[in-house]
Design a binder for these strands. Structure first.
Ligand code: FES
Ligand code: FES
Lengths: 135, 135
DNA sequence: AAAAATCGGATTACAATAGTCGGATATTAT
DNA sequence: ATAATATCCGACTATTGTAATCCGATTTTT
């Protein structure tokens, strides 16, 4: 379905929350309570965003997360890729060379679909957390 | 995940096939064999497209399907909506008035996300079967 | 009447998403 | 030091959605 996963939804909400409260370090617990997101799931999501370098973590009693970049440099596309990898519209062109799909060799929709995907990704790539948060 | 379902993939492939062979009526069996799509599943998909008026069916021994409109008037968005309904990016704004999500009343990402969805849908809405089929 | 097609409900199989649990590690405050 | 609070991480479970199948009915042409 053309739908964003909860993980991405939570990721956007969390990053937006951290962006707005950029004066201090924000714990997963605070986001979880304030945004009504299951704590464990959110933790996992934040850890993933951390691994991909979108946020930085601080362990320990006064720990939490801060953004690694400015909200204006953080796009929805970044978040999607960080949380789901380079997802592709159709399984067919997951691996650019190896043929997954029987139709691949002489498939007539492959190229147009790749262009379509590119355009959609461009939309995600030009929407930033700064715009969403309207700080 | 940002991925088109098999149903949509098959729908696009089938409509494109029908568009290219618009001189004659095309059976589900033919598409299934030529495109390597599971017959039963494809049948269901075609029936759904028929109900939504994108194609017209002819029962009986020489039956099959033809397009209701010109390929240039048939967009990927039409196919998505026909096969999955008005899908929305986030559950939150599935029902435009009733609040599904706790955050709804004063949610800061709702509007930006709706705009984002609108833009993406615009991309789908401007890609036609004619372009994909390159007849 | 037989054959070839669509129609349609019900069911099953599988995969992805969403969420949970338990414990380890790091850091700070007391 | 030690307790408290936080991230970290793997494994697990539950739920949902997708994909596919089954079976019988109906329609239409030959
Ligand atoms: S390559 Fe798989 S449908 Fe085109
Ligand atoms: S309304 Fe549900 S996240 Fe905004």
């Amino acid at each position: 379905m053309i739908k964003l996963s909860k993980k991405i939804e939570y990721g956007i909400l969390a990053l937006q929350y951290i962006a707005i409260h950029s004066d201090k370090i924000i714990s997963a617990k605070e986001i979880s309570e304030q945004m009504g997101i299951p704590y464990e799931f959110l933790s996992k999501t934040l850890q993933q965003l951390m691994k991909k370098g979108l946020i930085q973590s601080q362990q320990g009693i006064r720990g939490g997360y801060v953004l690694s970049r400015k909200p204006a440099d953080l796009t929805v596309k970044d978040i999607i890729i960080a949380l789901e990898g380079k997802s592709s519209f159709l399984d067919c062109f997951v691996s650019s060379n190896g043929l997954i799909c029987d139709r691949s060799p002489n498939c007539s929709i492959k190229d147009p679909m790749e262009k379509l995907q590119f355009k959609v990704m461009q939309v995600f790539g030009t929407t930033t957390i700064a715009e969403i948060a309207t700080i």
